[in-house]
């Protein structure tokens, strides 16, 4: 059995009277693509936000690479090696694409104010390294020609890819993608699938929220299904696809 990368136990998150996550447990293994699906409002994004430290869960615990992940702020989570993208895209719109990716290097670099003001040797070397790796990542996701364009002026698909490049710049071991294919056409989806497969080949584990069931089933090693904040299934895609509870959830029954 492969090594456990992320383990979550009994995660519960309530907003006022609404329970967004109810006792959700799961484990993600190193090197796999783990899909998370569910109808709208199932709690997928809430789970992401709990995982990346934006929300504190009401109950439950998480560990990443064997170390507890609870009560870390989002920047500490990024430092620990979890990067994410956002469902509604959160790019630094008025900055060039290249700088967006360079900002992703923040957490792996050290230069401070004095280094910047005095432009010391280490700072200059680090700066050159940041720019070089950012360019490599833009090339990796195939938008190197957009490096100097403002992020907000990129096409939708390019913005999605830019966000992935920025996340990769933090050198994550786990990359959490929140509906990366939303709004993409078929060609863009195919390109995105190739990128995700190649990210996995680099040894980066992927947690994927996706609406497009077909894409998830074709790509993921294992899939979990959330429904009204409850995990109702978890298995390889072929099994999940045939699970009556899952079919029921998607066709539109209310929770039992």
């Amino acid at each position: 059995m492969a090594e456990v990368l992320l383990e979550a136990r009994g995660l519960t998150k309530r907003f006022g009277g609404v329970t967004a996550l109810s006792d959700v447990s799961f484990t993600i293994l190193r090197g796999e693509i783990y899909g998370l699906i569910g109808p709208n409002g199932a709690g997928k994004t809430s789970l992401f936000n709990v995982l990346t430290g934006i929300y504190a869960p009401n109950a439950g615990s998480m560990s990443f690479e064997g170390r507890p992940l609870d009560r870390l702020t989002p920047d500490r989570v990024a430092d620990r090696g979890i990067a994410r993208t956002f469902q509604n895209l959160r790019l630094f719109g008025n900055l060039p694409a290249l700088e967006n990716v360079m900002i992703g290097r923040h957490v792996r670099t050290r230069s401070g104010v004095f280094g910047a003001i005095l432009r010391t040797g280490p700072t200059r070397r680090e700066e050159a390294d940041i720019a070089r790796r950012a360019r490599e990542l833009l090339e990796y996701v195939g938008i190197q020609r957009r490096a100097d364009m403002l992020a907000k002026n990129l096409s939708y698909g390019e913005q999605r890819r830019l966000e992935i490049a920025r996340a990769l710049a933090t050198e994550p071991r786990l990359l959490a993608l929140d509906e990366p294919a939303a709004g993409m056409n078929a060609t863009e989806r195919a390109a995105l699938t190739r990128i995700m497969e190649s990210i996995r080949e680099r040894g980066i584990t992927i947690l994927l929220i996706e609406h497009d069931v077909k894409l998830v089933m074709g790509l993921c090693d294992r899939v979990a299904v959330l429904h009204y904040g409850v995990k109702i299934a978890e298995d390889v895609p072929e099994v999940v696809q045939r699970d009556p509870k899952v079919i029921e959830a998607y066709i539109g029954g209310s929770p039992a």
């Binding site: 630094f92 996340a167 933090t170």
Partner: peptide, 11 residues
């Protein structure tokens, strides 16, 4: 530009 995204970048 975006504080939440900045934090997600480890800032």
């Amino acid at each position: 530009e975006d504080e939440i995204a900045a934090r997600a970048c480890g800032i």
